[in-house]
Write a protein that binds this DNA or RNA. Structure first.
Length: 491
RNA sequence: GAGCCAUUAGCUCAGUUGGCAGAGCACCUGACUUUUAAUCAGGGUGUCCCGGGUUCGAGUCCCGGAUGGCUCACCA
């Protein structure tokens, strides 16, 4: 059987598998050792003038091969980018050159050689020697179109990262954003802490949790849906400025804007209030935008979003009035019901005033809020952890920051009255009994903490993933989460 | 959870009225010592997502299912 005939009934994997065996039997280890790298691709390009004629050692993945007889070119890709390498039979000897020609695209190699420019001015390393560091057994996606199938891109993110350079950029931006936020919080002398991910009661937000079970304790544990209640326990414990950036989990639908696990920043500051949170938010966002972009104006799809502070502020009542011409400031559930009906909202009779207002807001206002806008003064019955407004007890001292129509941040002057907090929980428990699976459950331990005295405080949560989406112009949350949740599938 | 759309070679994609399964890249063989989506000559490597049905004949039409995308619902 000729090699060619053998090829015909062999798939690409077994062809490479055979190459690997041949390498081994000729004494070459296809999975090499430590390779001392002296330079990286981008560096050789940016410092070419100094490096011309110098000996360099680089390692990376072979991404292109242009052999032309007794010499040839190849592209090597490392974390910083691609660089061309040049191989010549007369430089490396017949055997080594043959070996190089046998390499597959996707193999990881280390080379050493001298930096030069070709006739067409391409910065190139003339290979003096090379070693195979890792044989690749599977063919990479096509070099020109890359990997487009979104399903494969998310499931096999490693391939996406190898062949689609923009993908790496978005994730590097994500890292920069989070780093900048940490720097910002640290500079304000906030203390970063870690609180339980598995909790006996999942509180701090209205959402369905994931449940697991602890065998030794023989009890259910919930993956946290928010960071809030533990961070507030730390306020009781004397931490005056505290923050956490970490994953929370919500057992809900998946969409371009929702992943079951996502990253939140939450921070709490004793003796502060909502106004302080507004200031911090504006300063933080403008500093983050500054650090990842040259401009305060960010393009997201068709929109241009201006992060220059101060951001627009509007109370929920004002916002609803200005988009519907209906005034809900009477605080009367019956009147609100009539207004909702005339606006075409499908609300049930008996729905509370606050829920109706919120419904009107979500339906008629939310999708208009493209530029950063603080919406303030949320009804108390949708804000069980926020302090009441002193003048209007049906409202709270709360804001949500909307950007690109998405809720990006949520903050309030924290409720620190344990009696009121208990009543709020009781209200939530009732709603849960009436079928609202997302309502809070009673958290006696949290109340116990608050009964020892929690300082007045301002607190805030920021959804990091959506912020990253906006700042990287990513249409899907899956473009900013390295390994988004997917239904498993055979490869 | 609902509606619409998609699924064909390792990847990116064609596939006509229902009539032998196709191209480019990748891969294999050969030529080529400064190319760069290298080029030239030759080679098609397939569970047409899965299961039924209609038909002389199904990648194509019908039904059911799987997975994904978009929109909506829920949510941040």
């Amino acid at each position: 059987m000729s090699t060619q005939e053998k090829q015909q009934d062999a798939d690409l994997f077994s062809v490479r598998r055979e190459k690997l065996d041949e390498l081994r039997s000729s004494g070459i280890e296809p999975y090499g050792d430590r390779f001392p790298v002296t330079h990286r691709a981008a560096e050789i390009a940016s410092r070419y003038d100094e490096l011309e004629g110098q000996e360099v050692a680089i390692a990376g993945r072979l991404m292109g091969k242009r052999i032309q007889g007794k010499a040839g070119f190849a592209d090597l890709q490392d974390f910083t980018g691609k660089i061309q390498v040049y191989v010549r039979r007369d430089d490396m000897g017949e055997d080594v050159y043959k070996l190089f020609k046998k390499l597959d695209i996707g193999d990881i190699i280390g080379i050493s050689g001298r930096v030069f420019r070709t006739g067409s001015q391409a910065i190139t390393v003339a290979v003096a020697s090379f070693s195979l560091l890792s044989k690749s057994l599977r063919p990479l996606p096509e070099k020109w179109h890359g990997l487009k199938d979104v399903d494969l891109r998310y499931r096999q993110r490693y391939l996406d990262l190898i062949v689609n350079p923009d993908v790496k950029e978005a994730f590097l931006t994500r890292v920069r954003i989070i780093k900048e936020i940490r720097r910002f919080m640290d500079d304000l002398n906030y203390i970063e802490v870690e609180t339980p991910i598995m909790q006996p009661i999942a509180g701090g937000a209205t959402a369905r949790p994931f449940v697991t079970h602890h065998n030794a304790l023989d009890m259910p544990l919930y993956l946290r849906i928010a960071l809030e209640l533990y961070l507030k326990r730390l306020l009781v414990g004397g931490f005056e400025k505290v923050y956490e950036i970490s994953r929370v989990f919500r057992n809900e639908g998946i969409s371009t804007k929702h992943n079951p696990e996502f990253t939140m920043l939450e921070f709490y500051q004793a003796y502060a209030d909502l106004g302080d949170m507004i200031t911090i938010t504006e300063e933080m966002l403008s500093s983050v935008v500054q650090s990842v972009s040259d401009s305060m104006q960010i393009r997201y799809g068709e929109q241009e979003i201006d992060f220059t502070p101060p951001y627009k502020r509007m109370s929920m009542l004002e916002a609803v009035r200005s988009y519907t011409n209906e005034d809900f400031s009477h605080f009367d559930a019956g009147l609100a019901y009539e207004q909702a009906r005339s606006l075409g909202l499908a609300v049930e009779r008996g729905t509370s005033w606050g829920k109706i207002l919120n419904e009107a807001f979500e339906t008629f206002v939310e999708d208009k809020l493209v530029q950063p806008t603080f919406i303030t003064g949320h009804p108390v019955d949708i804000s069980p952890l926020a302090r009441r407004n002193r003048e209007y007890p049906l409202l709270t001292e709360r804001f949500e920051l909307f950007i690109n129509t998405w809720e990006i941040a949520n903050a309030f002057t924290e409720l620190n009255d344990p009696i009121d907090q208990r009543q709020r929980f009781e209200q939530q428990v009732q709603e849960r009994e009436h079928g609202d699976e997302e309502a809070h459950v009673m958290d006696e331990d949290f109340l116990n903490a608050m009964e020892y005295g929690m300082p007045p405080a301002g607190g805030e949560g920021i959804g990091i993933d959506r912020l990253v989406m906006i700042l990287t112009n990513s249409p899907s949350i899956r473009d900013v989460i390295l390994f988004p949740t997917m239904r498993p599938r055979e490869i």
